[in-house]
Simulated scan of single mutants.
Amino acid sequence: MKLFNNTFSTVENALNYSSLKQRVIADNIANVDTPNYKAQDVSFGAMLNSSMNQAFSAKMTDQRHIPFQSVSDNPAIITQQNVEYNDNGNSVDIDKEMSNLATNQIYYSALTDRINGMFSTLQTVIKGGK
């Protein structure tokens, strides 16, 4: 019997995505004046594929089978190549990063409100509606 339904794991994965995106945005903002620094972003599709690979495991019955494993440590982080906003080779657009930061904070707040509501409902059920 599962204590939590799939909604909890979905919200948990969304929180992981938002947390990773927050770290990448913070790295970009911190390196806004670093010469030749290339801005990074988080690919939602790659993050989804990564979590799907963790959820599904394949049974390899032959050594020639292709394993379901990611080649890189974190395939969701992508580096923007061939883009320059500054003369020093830096590709960080501070206005875009600040906008992404605000959007991600709203998204994270909505997710935490959702999971708090789910735990509140669970607590009400445990107490018997009191």
Rank of each mutant, 00 (worst) to 15 (best):
A76R: 00
I126W: 01
R23A: 13
N5G: 14
E12M: 12
I78W: 03
P67D: 02
S91M: 10
L48M: 13
A46Y: 03
M98N: 10
K38P: 01
G128N: 08
P35A: 08
K2C: 01
I106N: 12
I106S: 12
M1N: 06
L48Q: 13
H65P: 00
Y107C: 04
I126M: 11
I66K: 05
D95R: 09
D73R: 10
Y108F: 15
F56Y: 07
S51V: 13
E97G: 05
S18A: 15
N82Q: 12
N100E: 15
Q54V: 05
A46N: 10
G129D: 06
Q105M: 14
V83S: 00
I106Q: 15
N74E: 06
F56Q: 10
P67Q: 01
A110W: 01
T10E: 09
A30E: 07
M52C: 00
A55D: 04
E97N: 05
N6S: 14
A46P: 01
G89K: 11
S43D: 13
N36R: 14
I106K: 13
L122W: 05
K130F: 03
D73E: 12
F119V: 06
T79E: 11
S72Y: 03
N6Y: 11
K127R: 14
Q40W: 04
I106C: 05
V24N: 02
K127H: 10
A14M: 12
D113F: 02
Y108P: 02
L20N: 09
S91T: 07
D73Y: 11
D87C: 00
F4E: 08
N74I: 12
N90T: 08
F119M: 12
T10K: 15
M47N: 07
S19L: 04
L48C: 03
F4K: 09
N82S: 10
N28L: 03
T103Q: 15
V125T: 15
L3T: 15
A14S: 14
N116M: 09
N90R: 02
M60I: 06
Y37L: 07
E97H: 03
S9T: 12
S109F: 07
T10G: 09
L122H: 08
R64S: 12
N16P: 02
I29C: 05
I94T: 08
G117H: 07
F4N: 14
T103C: 02
A110Y: 09
P75G: 01
M1D: 05
